[in-house]
Amino acid sequence: MSSGKLPTTEANVLNGHEGAVLAARFNSDGNYCLSCGKDRTIRLWNPHRGIHIKTYKSHGREVRDVHVTPDNSKLSSCGGDRQVFYWDVATGRVIRKFRGHDSEVNAVKFNEYASVVVSAGYDRSLRAWDCRSHSTEPIQIMDTFSDSVMSLCLTKTEIIAGSVDGTVRTFDIRIGREISDDLGQPVNCISLSNDGNCVLVSCLDSTLRLMDRSTGELLQEYKGHTCKSFKMDCCLTNTDAHVTGGSEDGSVFFWDLVDASVVSSFRAHSSVHTYVEGLGIKIIGRGLASIRNKLQFYSELFYNLVTSVSYHPKDNCMITASVDGTIRVWKS
């Protein structure tokens, strides 16, 4: 894989968010993307044509994560208002709100059949919500974490979540086991490889770690970027050939999956904004600073922070979201 194939040229800039964009996600076929941010909105874009399609407003606080069903019909989002919102994409209406998290919800995902929403919260728990019934009670609460749960992934049979307590826990529904992989470093984000065998874990010691899921073995470490205190995404490219992740200084890094060398790194977000409203989600574990969980962290240092990266499922295309309020579409 040469770096020439990597999406390093900017194709579009999606402007619209007023304030930091906290997450940007492709939908399952990669034709659309969703973003959410501090301005309490979720926006639907066509990143390939650079147009804004729809805005979803209902959140009372910042929106930290958004996920769309494989059939593009429903959205789920979560954020600072401690609720998980279940949206209808077309009408833009909230179908249901799942309340139960005791504090901010960091991540949300649908399962394969879009029947369950699983959310990960600062309250050290994962909660599974039923979209099919009218119950707003969680189906199940997984509260074995000892610190804020930052990120989660779902497979057909498993729920995988990473927490600031340094563990990546796999809840295997099929065999009824919970497998805990302790990485020793607070986990910021986890991302599954496309073949589902590995999990990429972004730790707060500025290291991405690739773990074999079946054995729990550490396969590789990727270093070079800065990731110390903010919630930032990482992911693998569509071919699983490279690992990509944002940095707190606004650059995006590409590593070779196998030899962990930095293949490419460029300043993805370098615009000089005079006013940056709020920055990314500062991660403060419960054990580290138990008094305050959320911070409005104003600093000139991080105005380019790349909060989110999402890779197109098929093409060499990537979107990055930043605190500067823009989403940028990158193509090769």
């Binding site: 199940q140 997984m142 020793g184």
Partner: peptide, 23 residues
Amino acid sequence: LYPKREEFQWRPASILCKRFDLT
């Protein structure tokens, strides 16, 4: 030392299994 793997028993809710289409 890390990653360190531990395994626990975990009981998924039956409805969760149902929703995931698993037994």
